[in-house]
């Protein structure tokens, strides 16, 4: 899903995003309002860890991508159900 939102920094943009979609907040922010460590953020295809983190400045044309970790590969219904039951 792609959205256009205001924000001069990554942090401001994330706030604009969770204001617009409050249900999303618990998925990407911890209780202190910081981005969860398993949500990777890329500004114009570069990991913000290589930039200024959540203070990374955005221009009007910046593309910001929130990338969740995924683990699928050999998905197996039974195995996953078993792990869940543990």
């Amino acid at each position: 899903m792609q959205l256009t939102l205001p924000g001069a920094t990554v942090a401001e943009l994330v706030t604009a995003l969770t204001d617009a979609y409050p249900d999303l907040a618990p998925h990407i922010l911890d209780d202190d309002g910081a981005l969860r460590s398993y949500v990777n953020v890329f500004v114009d295809d570069t990991d913000i860890r290589q930039l200024d983190g959540q203070a990374t400045a955005l221009s009007e044309s910046s593309t910001v991508r929130l990338l969740p970790a995924i683990a699928g590969g050999a998905p197996d219904d039974r195995e996953t159900a078993r792990q869940e039951a543990r």
Binding site: P68, A69, D76, D77, T80
Partner: peptide
């Protein structure tokens, strides 16, 4: 860090 297990949707 990995996401907490209850937030991880599996392919199953």
């Amino acid at each position: 860090t990995p996401p907490p297990p209850d937030l991880v949707p599996s392919c199953a």
